[in-house]
């Protein structure tokens, strides 16, 4: 992107509200994430972190408010004072620009590692299979899994699977990467290898929103730490401020519990 848009955030969330039945999971959340920035979402479980993340690529449909990515309204079209939900094809096109990494990896178990990485570039971007495979091998090398391309996901460790999932998201050359608790399903000794890959991406300037419980990781990598509680952002700012001197009582209690 150019200097002209540098001040305009890549992700703009305004007034985002989401209910599951009678329970309000998100209550009017505002959030900006600028290009090249890493935002880490912290908060107790049930605070709405994952739902916020899933609204950014319209895996959840908000009940009020909106999300903008790179200036485009996500999932809706504004017309005559109304927001019309987009057709699946248009939403699909928007999602292709945003990568997502899940807690349970969600690799496709019936496809090899290489096929996991080439499926979307070939089917969505129309990249020739050979070219997509070459690019996939580069990405596997980058996440430290060169040579594992013909393995099936079930044959890899959790940490390896999650690194494949990251490579799969990168294969679509996204403008933005979303991480939903990427290390929560991993054995403790495998967490480091996944966080190292994410750190490496942060250094390379990738814009990311990361939901995690790894406070140490947040301190080291985040540009902004956002603390959610009960569907609201109660505190946000640079990790030095939010993590060391939280002003909000709920944030203080949470941090002292997890540290």
């Amino acid at each position: 992107m150019t200097a002209g848009t540098a001040r305009h955030p890549l992700v703009r969330v305004r007034g985002l509200t989401k209910n599951f039945g009678t329970h309000q999971v998100l209550s009017g959340v505002d959030l900006d994430v600028h290009e090249g920035e890493v935002a880490v979402l912290l908060g107790p479980s049930g605070s709405g972190k994952s739902t916020l993340l899933r609204c950014v690529n319209h895996l959840e449909r908000p009940d009020a408010g909106f999300v903008e990515v790179a200036g485009d309204l996500v999932g809706y079209r504004h017309d005559g004072g109304r927001l019309h939900e987009l057709r699946p094809r248009a939403i699909t096109r928007q999602r292709a620009r945003v990568g997502m990494v899940f807690q349970q990896f969600n690799l496709f178990p019936h496809l090899t590692v290489l096929e996991n990485l080439t499926e979307a570039p070939v089917a969505v971007r129309g990249i020739p299979r050979k070219q997509a495979a070459a690019r996939a091998r580069e990405l596997l090398e980058r996440v430290g899994l060169g040579g594992r391309e013909s393995a099936y996901p079930k044959r890899l460790s959790g940490g390896q699977q999650q690194r494949v999932a990251i490579a799969r998201a990168l294969a679509m050359e996204p403008e933005l990467l979303l991480f939903d608790e990427p290390t929560s399903a991993l054995d403790p000794e495998l967490v480091g290898e996944v966080l190292a890959v994410i750190k490496d991406l942060a250094v390379s300037g990738m814009t990311m929103i990361v939901v995690t419980h790894e406070i140490g990781f947040a301190r080291e990598v985040a540009d902004t730490v956002v603390f959610l509680d009960d569907g609201r952002i109660v505190e946000s700012g640079p990790p030095g401020e939010v993590l060391t001197a939280p002003r909000h009582e709920r944030a203080r209690a949470f941090l002292s519990a997890v540290l």
């Binding site: 690529n57 895996l59 699946p88 094809r89 699909t92 096109r93 999602r95 292709a96 620009r97 945003v98 990568g99 997502m100 899940f102 969600n106 690799l107 496709f108 499926e119 979307a120 089917a123 969505v124 999932a165 799969r168 998201a169 679509m172 979303l178």
Partner: peptide, 11 residues
């Protein structure tokens, strides 16, 4: 599985 495929932009 569906969500992961959706997130990749598959139709």
């Amino acid at each position: 599985q569906t969500e992961a495929a959706q997130a990749l932009g598959l139709g």
